[in-house]
């Protein structure tokens, strides 16, 4: 599976310093958004998806693994966080013939997020253990099937409220004193979490772990012959990616104030792939650009029914046939730097 990113990645060495400059500029631009009059809800939503796409990109762009089921982390973390914030009490059906009930009150935002992230980490461990067993195209099919399995479970599980979803979720006071129901405060919290998540991914890519991942992507047999247990590396990358995708899902609960089946559906997994493809597979900033473009497109075309789906399909086809580097990859190729 080495050819995937061969022509998508610029050949030049990573210029960490230049990338940091772009990062600071990006952070500064995002920080002044509330002062510009741009609808903050749109930017917050886009930031959640940007984090999600970055997490997905960690796996495909640097591990060579195309997950077609990343919506399962978004949706799972969303449901868990939403449930903890709104209800709290956890009931396991029929454990040895009885309902097991953990009586909890509705939890605070930070605990809700921790819960969502922990459960998605656990989910990533389990699904990763299964899906890492096959490579390439099979890996994609397996992740898709696993997310569909979860979709059907959530469709039937009582706590998700099926087709209705969990609605009207209280945003609450973060750490007891940050009022998340105030849009501007929520915006900066979302931005801070996004930037922290992004830096974590950035750090991972440039760590020795990231280097091993890249070498596995380029040539797995060679990495094995060098003594790396490539399956363990791939599993770790999968867990990291799934956990961060879960963080995005928990965060999104505070923005959208609901958790629904849409977030677990395969169409959502496809959108995550599309965002990353448009921005540039294997680029650092591409997923962010892609997420903003796709979310903006959905906003503007919301009234056009299924034409959104058709346009997304056209973008997929166009990107694969003529624009495999994506926007950021194309720019990076022009300026001769990795971005």
């Amino acid at each position: 599976m080495s050819a995937l990113t061969d022509d998508t990645l610029p050949a030049s060495p990573r210029a960490v310093r230049d990338e940091m400059i772009v990062f600071v500029v990006m952070a500064a631009l995002l920080a002044i958004v509330p002062a510009t009059g741009i609808y903050p809800f749109f930017v917050m939503q886009a930031l959640c998806f940007a984090l999600l796409a970055c997490a997905f990109n960690l796996l495909i762009g640097f591990g060579g693994l195309l997950s077609f089921g990343h919506a399962m982390f978004l949706g799972t973390a969303g449901y868990v966080t939403a449930h903890l914030l709104k209800v709290g009490q956890i009931s396991f059906p029929y454990w040895a013939g009885h309902w097991v009930v953990i009586p909890l009150p509705p939890l605070s935002p930070e605990l809700g997020i921790i819960g969502g992230v922990l459960v998605s980490a656990l989910l990533a461990l389990v699904t990763g253990y299964v899906s890492i067993r096959r490579q390439g195209i099979y890996f994609s099919m397996i992740t898709l099937a696993l997310s569909q399995l979860l979709y059907f479970i959530y469709l039937q599980a009582p706590f998700t409220h099926g087709e209705d979803g969990i609605q009207g979720i209280p945003q609450g006071m973060l750490f007891g004193f940050i009022d998340l129901s105030k849009p501007t405060i929520l915006y900066y919290v979302v931005l801070a979490v996004f930037l922290a998540g992004f830096l974590l991914i950035f750090r991972t890519i440039n760590s020795p772990f990231g280097e091993v991942l890249k070498s596995i992507r380029e040539n797995e047999p060679r990495a094995i012959s060098l003594g790396y247990k490539t399956d363990q590396y791939k599993l770790l990358a999968y867990i990291a990616s799934g956990t961060l995708a879960g963080l995005a899902g928990s965060l999104k609960v505070f923005v959208a104030q609901n958790a629904s089946l849409t977030d677990v559906h395969w169409t959502m997994s496809g959108e995550i792939v599309l965002m990353t493809l448009v921005g540039g597979l294997g680029t650092i900033f591409g997923p962010i650009v892609g997420a903003f473009i796709i979310i903006a497109m959905q906003q503007y075309l919301a009234g056009f029914g299924q034409w959104v789906t058709v346009i997304q399909g056209v973008i997929f086809v166009g990107c694969v046939l003529a624009f495999r580097r994506g926007i950021v990859g194309e720019v990076a190729n022009r300026v001769g730097h990795s971005l």
């Binding site: 997304q312 399909g313 056209v314 086809v317």
Partner: peptide
């Protein structure tokens, strides 16, 4: 994987 992505796009269209 590009074949998967392309045919996914066709399916959406």
């Amino acid at each position: 994987l590009y074949g998967l992505l392309l045919t996914f796009g066709i399916a959406l269209i």
